[in-house]
Amino acid sequence: MSTEGDRSGGGEDDRVLVAEFALGLLRPGEHEQVARRIGAEPALRRELGIWQSHLSTLDDQFLESPAPAGVYERVAARLFPTPPRAAWWNSLLLWRGLAAAGLAVAVIAVGIDLVPRPAVTGPELVAALEAQGSDVKLIAFYDAKAGTVRLATVSGAAVPGKDFELWAIKGKNAPVSMGVIAVDTKNNVSMPETMKNGIDPGTVLAVTLEQKGGSPTGAPQGPIVAAGAATAI
């Protein structure tokens, strides 16, 4: 191995070796060996530079081909991992997003006939339930007088072997289960014992994907597929 780094770009053998390295023709093992030598010998580095600059003028011949969807998202997920989250129902971001969505939904709720038009007596709330990256979208209508939440599916399908579970979250309290719901039919969910005071504007309704029969622990375990804050109408 040469100790004087800057002989002359190496002898002819070295020149060929660097050219083969630049083209990627060397076998595994040999390639790494030459990489080490190039790292140690400026003359070889210079030689490599000459090949790289000339060969790179062939780069025009690589034709563009649109990258498949989702690659950037995976790169970003690797490089910029989100810090470990507190329980999602404490996420400020979720709440902010939901407040805005809730306002827009009243009109839709009326449009799909979820809201009874005849005289209403108790307070009534509506919520649009959705989440980024999920195609499950529901609209919830809360009738305080009846003590029920009615749900209509806007989009989403049942998942084999799993159940969707509805939760209500008031303020910073832990989610209270309102039971397993079906996404392919309308649901009429009665308020559970622990929610006898009903829900208020700002209460978040969320749907998670749980094991068959719902979360066994009484706390959500699966991913959130849709959520929305209740808004008065």
Partner: peptide
């Protein structure tokens, strides 16, 4: 070490 292969050639080259 392998990054040498990706590095910019020296300005002269």
């Amino acid at each position: 070490t392998l990054e040498i292969a990706d590095g910019s050639p020296d300005p002269e080259a």
